[in-house]
Every structure is written in C-alpha cells, then in structure tokens.
Simulated scan of single mutants.
Amino acid sequence: MAEQLEQQARVLEEHVMEQDAASARDNLLADPATPSEGGGGTEMPSRVAMDLTGGAPPPTAGGAEPDQGQPRENRGDDGDAPPANLPADEEAARREWDAMHPDGPTWDEMMAQYREGAPDRPDFEWDDDFPFESKKGEETLGDRASWARWEAMLRGGQAARPGLDDALAFYAHYRSAEGTRMEFDYEEAYIEDESVRANVDAQIRQSQYAAQAMAAEGRDDFSFTGPSAGESYYPTTENWQKTIGGYQQWSSGDVTVDDQGNARMVVTVHAEDRYNFNANNQDIATSEPDDANGRFSELGWAQGFDPSGEVVRVVEWNVNSPDQVTVTTP
C-alpha cells in the first residue's frame, strides 16, 4: 500500500509540474501589458505571491529604472540614489511619525531611547505561526502536489519575472529549509521603492535630531545607537513587498562637531525582518493565502530566516541651524 501511495504521489507531482510549467510558458508569451490577477491583501499582507509567472513587472516607484534582475552596478541606470526628502523640521517629523504609529512608540519615546555608544542591535521578537517541523512526517498527497506546484511557479517566475529577482531569491532560500541569515540590498530598495525611501529618510531625520540633542550637551566626537520600530510605510513595489514586507528599522552612527558648530554624521540605517508566513493572511498582489507556504515549514520542507540590509548616509548641518541639512551618499 505504501509503495502504491508513493507512486500515486509521484504521478500527481509530475502532472502538476507539467501543468504549471505550461502555464508559466503561456504567461511568458502573453501580452506583457496584461496585469496579473489578484487584488488587495489583508491588513498585514504577506510577501510571496502565488502568481510568480504572470503579468508584467510593476512600475518602479519614484521614477527609478525598473529592476531587471541585476545588481545595481550592472543595471541600465547609474545606480545613484535619489535625493533624500526629509521632514522640514522636528515638529513636522514628530507629527508624521506619530500619525504613522498610532499605537506607539511615539516620537518622544523613540528619541528618549537614543544613547551614546557603539552600535547595539536591538532584540527582536518575531511571530511564528507555522513552527518548523512541528508536523514533520504528516505530509499528504495534497502537500506533495502543492509543493510541486509552487516549485513550478518559482522556476517559471525566475524565467519570466526578472523584476522579482530579490523576492524569488528569498523564496528559494525559504524553500531550501536552511534557515540561515540572508542579506538584501537595502540601497536598491531605497532607489526602487518610494515607501522604503520615505522610511529611510524618516529614520535619518530622527537620528540627526537625536545627534543634535547630544551635541547640544557639549559632545563633539561620539557614536550613538538607537531603538527599533516598525516601518512607517509598507513597500509599494511588488518585488519589495514580497522580499521584506513589513519590517523593523534602527540606526547607529558616528558624529563630529568642529569649533564652528559644523556637525557631520555618518549614519547607518539598519533594516531587520523575519521571512516567514502568517496564518489567515494573504498576499497583497494575488490574495493567495499564506497557509500553503506555512504548511511547508511545519512539515520541515521549508524554513523561515532573518534577512537584513543597510543604507549609509553622510548628514551635515550646523548645530545652530539643525533644520538645514545636507545628505549625501558616501
């Protein structure tokens, strides 16, 4: 009986892969202007869409060149980040922050947690709705078919959706079940996604005002580290929705102030995340539920992991005019 079930599973897997591979080829040859199916997501949408092969890559936010599945230095644009767009002053920054974080922490609570010292990565607590190997050995024929189906869509997406290169690389790593940390190019996300850019700019401004407060106490050569908080804006581009989704930020930096009150801060904005799937949630682009991929983790076939990335900027201002700043890329 066991051998018969195993044979049936293999036949079913082969059938599913043949069907999905054919769909991937059809989508690759389809009109590139045809959007993929799927609508809005839930309040906390996940990051990996079911339809990895269909439709055209979404337009890139902010006018940057679309990602063609290459590192920034090998792309068609010059790879430069757009100018920072910081809140006009501390009061504007406070209002924006508090409006986007109605449940806290408030701007003042965040500012109070900046302190002098070397970078100190905060502790993070991530949700885990589908614990790894919690249902190991309980796979069914349906699980095998689902696994084969998603494998076919992953391969089809790698062939047909170069603009999802970051998302597909992360999903492939999830399916490897290695569970090891993985870096993402946060600078690329800053260039391509206007929401990511707004998150980083807000973090830079907050760090600058924290450094200004320390400088006002007489410090002229110091390092600082800050607290973490969820991002203010959810990514707008499909690639980064699926790669990082909702994530955490914190910052650290080094500051010098000369005799004329000219301050120079080299700040690193750190992005941290946990790549996994959430029960009863669905993809923002396709409405595909998270549960199928979460099931793979329970069976031990896939495993969540911790992604991270960094953006570094040089910020200069005079301590007597802290609202007037210059932000450059080192």
Rank of each mutant, 00 (worst) to 15 (best):
T268E: 14
F277R: 11
S252F: 07
A285F: 10
N262T: 07
R264A: 09
A285N: 15
V255C: 10
G261S: 06
V255N: 00
G246E: 00
Q249A: 03
T256P: 01
G253C: 09
G246D: 04
E272A: 09
T256E: 11
G245K: 06
V255G: 00
T286I: 07
D254R: 15
Q260K: 13
V269P: 00
I244T: 06
A279E: 07
T243S: 13
V255W: 02
T268S: 14
M265E: 05
R264Y: 00
R274Y: 12
S251T: 08
N281I: 01
F277D: 04
Y275F: 15
Q248G: 00
T243Q: 05
T286Y: 08
A285M: 15
A285D: 15
M265K: 06
S252M: 10
D254I: 07
A263M: 09
Q248K: 05
Y275H: 08
Y275Q: 07
S251Y: 00
N281D: 09
N276S: 15
V269M: 09
Q282V: 07
M265V: 01
N280D: 11
H270S: 08
S252R: 08
G245S: 08
T268C: 12
G261H: 05
Q260S: 14
D258R: 13
V267L: 13
Q260D: 15
V257N: 03
V255P: 02
D273S: 11
N276P: 01
F277C: 11
D254C: 04
G245T: 06
G245W: 00
D273K: 14
V269T: 09
S251G: 05
M265F: 04
E272S: 09
D254V: 10
G253K: 07
A279T: 06
Q282K: 13
D283Q: 12
S252C: 11
Y247W: 10
E272M: 11
A279L: 15
I244P: 01
V266W: 02
F277P: 09
K242M: 12
R264K: 13
D283I: 06
Q249I: 04
D259N: 07
Q248S: 04
G253V: 05
D283M: 09
A279P: 02
I244G: 02
S251M: 02
D259E: 10
D258L: 12
